[in-house]
Write a protein that binds this DNA or RNA. Structure first.
Lengths: 232, 232
DNA sequence: ACCTGAACACCGTTCAAGT
DNA sequence: ACCTGAACACCGTTCAAGT
């Protein structure tokens, strides 16, 4: 019984930038982005923290890299969406792509914040936006309006909106838990919540339907753009 | 010549939560949010890092606090906006308030990212949104549509959009600096940029007008909401 | 060529101790 | 009541050294 064999150390597949980035996505998926440290990531790939620097410049480079990995995943999903043959073609196609992108991002809840923290631009994100531009070109939009449209959509084009606050409190109780003095300063919020409580007494918790709200905002923008298209 | 006097140690104004938060805003304004460390902040107020914990729970509490400070600043600016007497009243009023909020945020470039990183809700932010709701109520909107509207506007209601990428590269050259293989994969982006270069040869750098783009997106949303109001 | 151990500078935070 | 010094655990990163 050879000692070496007994140790059971599987011949480690060598590290690479790609393997590091994939492991980083796994770590973030499992424990959130704040759990993604160089030491934790090294554990994940079965190496020491310092080994990572051979394949990756630094942590910023890793963050840039995982954004690109997720964006590539989004592109794959977007390409699988088949183009509608009838109806408002550019709009239906753009809508479907964006919702496909959203589905990918829902699997990586940490990703939106990292996307927004990047200063470098991900090539895969560029490719995604380029595809959206293509749909709008086919629909007859000018580059000028397309440019405005991309700004107006912003991160929504990639399938996410960063919520500043959830009106009814995401999981916490709303009006009931609010101090009285505070309620006085927020008559409209209180009014809205009591109307909801009246209409649907069970809905205080988890009231906002993120998906429905996302689609509402998306359609508001796409419909506005469509109107501009028809006027041009 | 008394030694004590000669030391020239001014009788330090005592620390307080408010003083700590105001100093934190100063530090972030001067050096960006990443320069805001407990030790640096302590320097700013002329104390040791550990003293801060007497007035503030921890760093998260400071971040929650400075968001509230900025939001209060926004509320002051929003209240100074006088209500339009004619035209589309709710819309013009909302638009003016939002642009006033934006002006405040432009003075604190670090703030948007911190706003979005908060999990606790700032009372001052709630007050701001409540005011916006009030305008919409006066315009005749139902709570239901108002709720959708707040989600659709998102951070734009507070005057900012977090740009994912600047189409023409914020300050860096665009098409010219792109590797040829990459350009092939981005036909629409390249097309757009060459059209711009043709129309206005000097505009490659700093091409996107953030303020104009912000207003374009804002009007797209407000106009869409106004249309819903008239249909109801 | 690829990986690692030891070490450094710098975080946020605790705790016992000072006035 | 308010502030501080020393210390701890944990970061990202460097560098010289191993195979």
């Amino acid at each position: 019984m050879g000692v070496r064999v007994e140790r059971g150390v599987a011949p480690r597949t060598p590290l690479s930038r790609e393997r590091v980035l994939r492991a980083a996505v796994s770590v973030a998926d499992a424990g959130g982005i704040e759990s993604l440290t160089m030491r934790r990531l090294a554990d994940e790939v079965g190496a020491e923290a310092m080994s990572l620097y051979y394949h990756v410049a630094n942590k910023e480079d890793i963050l840039d890299g995982i954004v690109d990995v997720i964006a590539a995943e989004i592109n794959e999903a977007a390409e699988r969406v088949r183009r509608p043959a009838k109806g408002n073609r550019w709009k239906n196609a753009a809508r479907a792509r964006i919702l496909a992108a959203r589905e990918v991002l829902l699997l990586h809840p940490w990703a939106p914040a990292v996307f927004e923290s990047r200063t470098a631009i991900s090539p895969a994100v560029l490719r995604y936006y380029d595809g959206l531009m293509g749909l709008m070109r086919e629909g007859g939009f000018s580059y000028d309006v397309i440019h405005h449209a991309l700004h107006a959509l912003g991160s929504r084009a990639l399938g996410f909106t960063q919520e500043l606050f959830t009106p009814a409190g995401g999981g916490g109780g709303p009006a009931a838990e609010m101090p009285a003095e505070m309620a006085e300063a927020l008559p409209n919020l209180v009014g809205m919540m009591s109307e909801i409580a009246h209409d649907d007494p069970d809905s205080t918790l988890g009231w906002c339907d993120d998906q429905a709200e996302f689609e509402f905002g998306l359609d508001l923008l796409l419909d506005g753009l469509e109107r501009m298209r028809r006027q041009a």
